[in-house]
Nucleic acid binder design. Structure first.
Lengths: 240, 240
DNA sequence: TAAATTATGATTGTGTACAATATGGGCACG
DNA sequence: CGTGCCCATATTGTACACAATCATAATTTA
């Protein structure tokens, strides 16, 4: 298990990548792994393994884990360690509600601010999404799909909202991993194209409304029933 | 300076308050102090002072500071320590834009979910705001004013959005401290009453629009020009 | 006298060692 | 044979001490 985590889920950092590696970098790498569903919800993240993986001391790993806990993608249980978060169905609904609150605004900002070069890049991005889909590269497809929303947030040019969206997109990956049906996600890149079309036409209202619809569709394709892992809940309940 | 920080800005934790004090508690206390403008922007937060203040080891203080840095209310400068954040004018605009994206949604949720008892409590809250205003208790007034928005978020019953609002309200306190004219804030509790009126009438659109207006008014009363603190910038620029 | 430079002190960053706690297996007992 | 208890082990939490870095002040020189 540890070996698998070490060798596969988080790739060891290359030796030539600078003398030290910051906790921010470590957090980002784990964050990316979560976003790409290489680290499934509930995965234990032992400090030793992460120390070996990144070649740093425990102190730095602990800071990285604390950063991730603040972003709600990692759960720190006292004296038990760090785990990739397992959002509940309620949390999932809250995450989507939050995205519906924020991302329409981002679409309006994008329509107001985007330049032609950026539009071409967005279309490129969606092309890569489609390519990943048809060639069955699931991780790649998931990464690009979330990255599209983050990219829009960046174009929207509000770092505060961008940070929120980054967090929400990562949590959405966890949610899809927990509540998603495996085959459903094949329609997402199509909707992304619809969003781009609205952007091109500079139709802020259309763009905002399509974003809400898009998020609704993603949420609707989930099975948001409490698949409680009883082995965990019994433990937690009985201890308290 | 350190003595002032120790004795006044952050009250020493009472001795009887349990054997240990968690980093979350420490972070919350500093967070509250920032929100109440007891800790002005740019204030240095030396680790050993905080150790003495809270009676804990440096390790815990460092974790608390990292939590606060993630919430963007504290800035960690490498090898120089922790400082209360000094938002730029651009950041200030972004914070208000983010609030305009999120808080109208919260108002809609409030209108949909609030119960009569909660309405009475909200009115109580605003009464206390007014009382603090007329009696000149500036800190109290600021705390209650921000707390009103957080309270609404809690009633909105979406913990994800609530956390975002908590952060944005705290950063708004810093922004008002930096860019606000001292006497302006006397109209806020009046607008809060308008918001409550819209909630009572269950007019979701009104409530949402009034929230946007309210946030616009707060932002408009600021002087969002870059008041660069040259003493700081000169240092940073000349060294690099 | 003023500016530059070095030296000193204080503060932060980091690694290591130890203590506390939870997990899992073995053992006794019902 | 199943259940409860206890001990060994592994992992996390915490404190301490040392190293690195930066700010301040004194000193020297032009």
């Amino acid at each position: 298990m540890d070996k698998i985590l070490h060798n596969d889920r988080i790739r060891p950092v290359p030796e030539e990548s600078g003398p030290v590696i910051s906790e921010q970098t470590i957090a980002d790498r784990i964050f990316s792994a979560v976003m790409e569903q290489r680290l499934p919800p509930g995965t234990k993240l032992p400090e030793n393994v992460l120390c070996d993986t990144f070649g740093v001391s425990r102190a730095r790993i602990r800071r990285a884990l604390l950063i991730l806990a603040e972003r709600e993608v990692v759960e720190l249980r006292s004296n038990r360690g760090a785990f990739v978060a397992r959002p509940s169905a309620d949390e999932a609904r809250d995450v989507f509600a939050a995205r519906r609150a924020i991302e329409p605004t981002i679409m309006r900002n994008v329509v107001a601010l985007i330049e032609d070069g950026e539009i071409a890049k967005l279309q490129d991005h969606v092309d890569r999404e489609t390519a990943a889909h048809v060639s069955g590269k699931r991780n790649e497809a998931i990464r690009l799909s979330g990255g599209f929303h983050v990219r829009l947030a960046e174009i929207g040019n509000n770092p505060v909202l961008t940070r929120f969206v980054e967090e929400l997109v990562a949590r959405t990956s966890l949610i899809i991993g927990l509540f998603g049906s495996p085959g459903i996600s094949s329609c997402l890149d199509g909707e992304h194209r619809t969003l781009i079309a609205a952007i091109i036409e500079r139709e802020a209202d259309h763009a905002a409304n399509w974003m809400v619809e898009h998020l609704n569709h993603i949420e609707r394709d989930l099975e948001l029933t409490e698949k409680v892992d009883y082995s965990i809940d019994i433990q937690t309940i009985l201890k308290s």
